[in-house]
Every structure is written in C-alpha cells, then in structure tokens.
C-alpha cells in the first residue's frame, strides 16, 4: 500500500483570519518497505504534515491518498488497519501491563469487546519479539523507563498490522543509545516487512545513516532524495543554515564554523588521530593538510602512550590530549 499526497496544502484554519499555510502543493509518495526520514528546522510544520498524512488534521487543499482512496473518506477503523501512529510522548497509564498496552494495537481488528483470538495473540507475541521487548510484557507500563515505554508503543503500532507507520519524533525524550537502537529497529522493520515508515526526527546523523530517503522540509517546500544525494547537492546544508554553523560535507555532520585559529597537522588515520582531530576542532584550531609549523602525533613505545607536540622543531611529550591542548594553548598565545 502506498501513501500519496496530491497537491496537498497543510496548515491551520483560523476563524475570521486567513489560513496559516505551512506548505503547499506537496506531491509526496511513501512506498512499501522504505524508511523515510522527515527532517527540518523547528516550527517548519513536520508535526502538522504527519497529522495531516495520518488523517488527524484536515488538509487546507488537496488530498491524502491511500492506494487511490482519499484518507478523509475512510472510516476510523479502516484507517487504523492501514495506518499506525507513534508520537513523542509515550503515555503512562496506571495498572496496565506491557502486554495489555501492545494488545491495544489489535483494536482495529477485534470485536466490540476487544477480545483477543489466538491469531491476535500470535501477532502480539511477534510484535513484542520484533522490538525485543518480550521481558516488558509482564511489567506495569507506569514503572518502565521512557525508552522501554516507547519500545512498547512501537510494538503496539506493529501489532496494528498497518501498511504505513508514522512516527512523530519518537526518540525526542530518549538517551543516545536508545535513539540509535530505535532508528536501527525502524530500519530493520522496513527492511524485513512491507511496512512503509515515515519518521520525523532531529537526529540528523541517525537519519543520514539509516533512512532510505529523506524528506527535507524548509520554507521552500519539501525536497526528496537519498540522504547522500541531498548532502552532495547542498540541500542539507541549505535547510539547516544558521549563523555560525555549517554542514561539513566531508564528515557528514554539522560543525561550528572554524575560528581563524592556528593550523595544526595531525598525521595518520587511526582512532587516536580521529579523536585528536575532534579535540582540536572543538578547541577552535584548524586542521592543516600537510606538515607545517605545528604538529601533534600519537606515539606508542616502551614508556607507554604519549602525545608529541612539535612547535617549530621543539618537541614536548604529554600523557593526555587534554595536557597537549593546554601546552599548545600556552605556546601559541
């Protein structure tokens, strides 16, 4: 099943005043089996777009189509069988087990009392397994961590057996390992099922590494493409352009604009060299392409690990990067 928008305008209607249009003439397409990242600065309308695509908000103009059928015409239950939703805030209902929470995902398929059949239970077990959350089934949801509850919310969306899953900043309240885990999980799900997943996020790096395509949302509209193409043609940089920050095309991440500091040469590509370069960039030094007046290198010998700082031929040894940076600062000011 494919989710499309046809000449879609999104935003808010206001009584007696002109509509607030956040984006217009959107012709987007979300295909089965792909993970798409929705990126854009704060306040640009990512949540509004997700709500509109999910049928929770009326479009200002145009249509959202699920396989040629207008989503606004679908009954709520029919829509829920095709489309599931995960938002930022994972609720913490009291006296509900993890299993009961995931079981709520079966609601579009169960009878008027919500009774579970053997098939329903198989699917719930599969969904719990897919998010690696089997051990959370018997625990009260209210006592779980944010990351664990978000895991269960995703399992609940999976149990819905929809064709499309929309996620609105699902990782906003999670710590970094949990964010990486969540994005990897979404990538796996898109790859192993026919699920089409659209996820809005502020984790640019994770989106670049995991998403099949990106929807870059800016004042100019939405630009669609593979992450690498959007990086190379400068769209990524343009979307998040801000004072004092630039998109580093080589490293694939945003960086502070380099101060006009001293240039330092670091030989090699080992992990010591990589972390040393990060430290220098953080401290405001520029990196030189070839050996020059200043050079820092890592040495491993009988005395242990050392950092050698060479300035105009004078070499000093330091035990840590921190010490080497301090010495560099002393010598150059």
């Amino acid at each position: 099943m494919t989710l499309r928008s046809r000449d879609l305008s999104i935003g808010y209607r206001r009584r007696g005043r002109p509509d607030v249009v956040l984006a217009r003439a959107l012709n987007l397409c979300l295909r089965p089996g792909e993970l798409v990242g929705l990126l854009g600065p704060n306040g640009i309308g990512k949540s509004t777009l997700l709500s509109t695509l999910g049928g929770g908000l009326q479009p200002l103009a145009g249509q959202v189509l699920l396989d040629q059928r207008d989503i606004a015409r679908l009954k709520p239950q029919e829509r829920a069988r095709r489309l599931s939703l995960v938002t930022t805030a994972a609720p913490r209902p009291r006296l509900m087990s993890g299993y009961a929470l995931v079981a709520l995902g079966r609601q579009p398929h169960t009878d008027w009392l919500g009774r579970l059949t053997a098939d329903d239970r198989d699917i719930i077990a599969w969904a719990l397994d897919a998010v690696n959350g089997g051990e959370l089934a018997g625990q009260p949801v209210a006592e779980l961590s944010d990351g664990q509850r978000q895991k269960l919310m995703i399992a609940r969306a999976l149990a819905q057996q929809s064709d499309i899953m929309l996620l609105d900043e699902p990782t906003a309240f999670l710590d970094l390992p949990r964010r990486i885990e969540t994005m990897a999980l979404l990538k796996k799900l898109a790859g192993t099922t026919r699920l089409a997943i659209l996820v809005s996020t502020h984790d640019l790096d994770l989106a670049l590494r995991n998403c099949d395509r990106l929807w870059l949302m800016s004042q100019a509209g939405i630009k669609v493409g593979a992450p690498e193409d959007l990086a190379l043609d400068g769209s990524l940089g343009a979307t998040f352009r801000a004072e004092g920050i630039h998109f580093d095309q080589r490293r694939g991440s945003f960086a502070l604009d380099a101060a006009a500091g001293q240039r330092v040469y670091v030989p090699g590509d080992g992990e010591h060299a990589i972390w040393l370069r990060r430290a220098l960039a953080r401290a405001g030094y520029a990196l030189a392409d070839r050996p020059g007046q200043i050079e820092i290198s890592h040495q491993q010998n009988g005395h242990g690990s050392n950092w050698h700082l060479r300035i105009n031929g004078d070499t000093s040894r330091h035990a840590t990067i921190e010490a080497a940076l301090k010495a560099l600062e002393r010598e150059t000011t």
Partner: peptide
C-alpha cells in the same frame, strides 16, 4: 508466517498471555 515467527521467538504466546492481566 507471523505465527511461525512468534513460536520461534524467545517468548511463547501462552507464557505471554498470562502476563496480560499481570496483577489483575
């Protein structure tokens, strides 16, 4: 196919089922 995956999973359906009403 889903059923097969669930059976192969680390938590069987019946063991999980008993947890639906954990504490109830």
């Amino acid at each position: 196919q889903l059923a097969g995956q669930a059976q192969a999973g680390s938590f069987s359906r019946d063991r999980l089922h008993r947890r639906e009403y954990a504490g109830a």
